[in-house]
Nucleic acid binder design. Structure first.
Lengths: 199, 199
DNA sequence: CGTGTTTTGAACCGATCGTTACAGAAAAGG
DNA sequence: CCTTTTCTGTAACGATCGGTTCAAAACACG
């Protein structure tokens, strides 16, 4: 028994995420968010509370969907190194597609760490990313430890270290893509990165 | 025949660079720059013209000094892979020292790419970093190509690709450090990364 | 159709943004 | 000493920032 809203919450979050992704947290204004989402200021603040709360929701949604996508690729059958290679290749293909469709390049989580690492007022966002990173590292560590036991992965570096290495490689790929590296170079990076894992 | 300035230009640039490094371009205000440098608003604008011009100068200085430091490490005698390892280790040691002294973590260039990649109004900063990256890639490519000819480096990936890989590894290290990865993990990443280069 | 509840658009809030204007202060040259 | 030139501090500029207020609008329910 009340006036219904005229927008779809998920669509608004998608549009807002795209904008935060492209421009960063600080450079994205409430005005731009209204324009990108089609909402008025009242609706935006009535629905999400504040720019920071909206960003937190966008970031959380982004982290959840990418974590799920990661888990799916990692869970596939096959050689351990091949699975990691598929994971990294997926990153490259994503960048290629985003580049051709005009979508923002790079990764919202990586961008947020780079932008907000020294921002004591917005530490909550960093903690969100840190939790996601911890979970991702646990997943990778388990996979790599099993691969090591199976003799598919080098024993020269501890599994936790290799997991951190794979995670760093993804960030490196993302930054390289944002820096304008051509697709062929990104593919080379994947080839090199997977070499490090083999026995 | 005029009033002399009461500040040292280099010291001001150092302080401003530190602030931009820690907080990013957009989040750093003119007021904060005045406070960090000790200059008044007039002096700051009279000397550097605008916040953007000051940032460009800080970024240029940062890129030049790091490029020089990189060239010095790379130029040392010894095995090619060992030189790359020394380069990556230097990054880790830098992060360790910056962490213990309260200096900002990560890399101003990486942060700038992440923050400004989608910022059409500040493309000049990206071009600055792109020029620096190109030069760095050329240096690494030459080194790795020679190492490949000497049989010290794998031939499975082209030298340009390995150079892009080393560059991406540095960015990955920097982002990992900003994300709070402990020193031991960063060291593991270096160990893993160098494995990729060997034949 | 009337009532109750929520959403919506527009105007508006103080604060801060990057930048400028201007008048006085500080040296160098005559 | 006086002029000239540059620098410095203060105060302010219009614009925009994130956020709020409020009355009108829109639907569900009786």
């Amino acid at each position: 028994m009340a006036r219904p809203r005229t927008f779809d919450r998920e669509q608004v979050l998608t549009a807002a995420t795209e904008l935060f992704w492209r421009r960063g947290f600080h450079a994205t204004s409430a005005e731009e968010l209204c324009q990108a989402t089609g909402l008025g200021r009242s609706s935006l603040y009535n629905t999400f509370g504040s720019k920071g709360a909206l960003f937190a929701e966008c970031l959380g949604r982004y982290l959840d969907t990418t974590a799920q996508a990661t888990a799916e690729v990692i869970a596939k059958k096959g050689d351990t190194v091949a699975r990691i290679e598929a994971y990294l290749t997926k990153v490259v293909l994503e960048e290629a597609e985003r580049s051709s469709t005009g979508a923002p390049s790079g990764c919202l989580a990586v961008n947020s760490v780079a932008e907000l690492a020294g921002d004591t007022e917005n530490a909550e966002f960093l903690e969100q990313v840190a939790r996601d990173t911890d979970a991702r590292l646990r997943l990778l560590t388990d996979l790599l430890r099993a691969g090591r036991a199976a003799g598919e992965v080098t024993a020269e570096v501890p599994a936790e270290g290799l997991a951190a290495y794979v995670n760093a490689s993804v960030a490196g790929l993302r930054i390289s893509a944002q820096g304008g590296a051509p697709l062929a170079r990104l593919a080379d990076i994947v080839q090199a990165a997977t070499r490090a894992l083999r026995p």
